[in-house]
Design a protein around this nucleic acid. Structure first.
Lengths: 238, 238
DNA sequence: CGAAAGGTTGACACGTGTCAAAGTGGGTGG
DNA sequence: CCACCCACTTTGACACGTGTCAACCTTTCG
């Protein structure tokens, strides 16, 4: 998993605005650099952490793309999220001092290791960081709430539309195109996340494509009619 | 919503072990009493908070039973949880300074109001409290993960079995029977939580009843064969 | 006591799962 | 550098679990 370790500083990281709280002066920012111990590389397909691993750190993704998942004893897998640059993984480990989910790199990745003891120590010193950590965790709770709504109430088309809109919105926030992108995950992984089978994912992609809403070729996706997607996801706003 | 306010202390509350971190001495415990501003009553059917309300406080349930839910603009409701004595609601509000879900009392209830500013102030002073708050939030993330697994991978029978086992386990931890109880929520609310229609909930109850696994009469439930329920929920452990 | 809300049950419809076969593309080794 | 292989994707036919609609029953409460 760890192929290299580099010591780095948040204070001159271009993802600072995504990971870190705002409104620090130079001096405070340097103090905050202490929160990150090292930066490590994770090869595509390998686990950043796995179910049962002792919890020591949160991880901020610098480059690359991850999925988190949990699995039952009889082998069923549930993808609980897809994470990209600037997002944090590992919050699940705090409650029981070991991780309950797996975090797997879907492409070669680099993550900043933030030992949780550092996070807590600095949080007590900097209320702004404390508030930031609380917001991170609350954001994750709210995110999962909205997935519950997807899985509990929405049909296949609505789920996939919501998924695509969410993905493209996050990619756009990171400076990528808001119309085209390459999926980093398989149909099966999308299906697991959205509570449907891979065939249904594929069929729904094809349906959107036939309707001229998107263009799909394997993992390449171009959104031709974002309004149509929004309408499918939330018919009431039209 | 608020019919009465009472000033109280955690230090002599019999639910302390459920809400509060352990391992404090007398003096520290008295300091911690400051976290709770007041205690309020919430009438059955009324909202402790609603979507859009400004976030000010977390709430520890002292007596009564709540549901939390979110809803789409076109009126679909998703129940995101059922909460009982000793459990905390309101964590969803931290990230955006307003609540995104509704918390509704399913029976007359009493809750302790913990202004979040107090929580954060005392967290900086008491590392044990800080850790406790982090665990609470992480526990909620892990709980939602397991519901994602339910909704994404399980069939109706598995969902209801998991629901009943979870409910009875939490009730038992509070000193109630581990075999019989009264449901505080309707079939429709159970269905919303578990991602199924009320008729399916009712039918699944009837099926369990015909198989001699449970006894059901409206909201009264008695678990006759807990092992059978566990087997339905998780076949691999048999 | 009557009405309203909630729960049960049946018949049928429909969306998604299952199983199978064929197509596509990328990576690897000869 | 090409050819093969394997993982992934697409598509079709059919099955099945759950949703939908409707009728009836039970309980609660004014």
């Amino acid at each position: 998993m760890l192929t290299e370790t580099i010591k780095v500083a948040c204070s001159n990281c271009n993802l600072r605005e995504l990971c870190m709280p705002m409104g620090f002066d130079q001096t405070e920012m340097q103090k905050l650099d202490e929160v990150v111990a090292t930066r490590i590389k994770v090869k595509q397909g390998s686990n950043l952490f796995s179910h049962g691993d002792p919890f020591t750190s949160l991880y901020a993704i610098r480059t690359g793309f991850f999925k988190t998942s949990i699995s039952t004893e009889d082998g069923r897998e549930q993808v609980t999220g897809f994470q990209m640059a600037g997002e944090i993984v590992g919050l699940d480990g705090i409650v029981n001092d070991h991780h309950t989910c797996n975090a797997i790199a879907l492409e070669d990745a680099e993550v900043c290791v933030m030992p949780f003891a550092n996070v807590e120590d600095l949080s007590r010193e900097f209320p702004v960081l404390q508030r930031h950590v609380h917001k991170m965790m609350s954001r994750e709770i709210v995110r999962e709430n909205s997935i519950l709504m997807l899985l509990g109430n929405m049909r296949a088309e609505e789920r996939l539309a919501a998924f695509l809109l969410n993905l493209v919105q996050r990619l756009h926030a990171r400076g990528f195109s808001q119309s085209e992108f390459i999926l980093r995950m398989s149909r099966e992984e999308i299906g697991s996340y959205l509570g449907m089978k891979l065939e249904t994912v594929s069929r729904t992609f094809s349906k959107f494509s036939e309707e001229g809403i998107i263009e799909v070729k394997q993992r390449y996706v171009r959104i031709l009619n974002p309004d149509a997607l929004k309408k499918i996801f939330n018919p009431s706003t039209c």
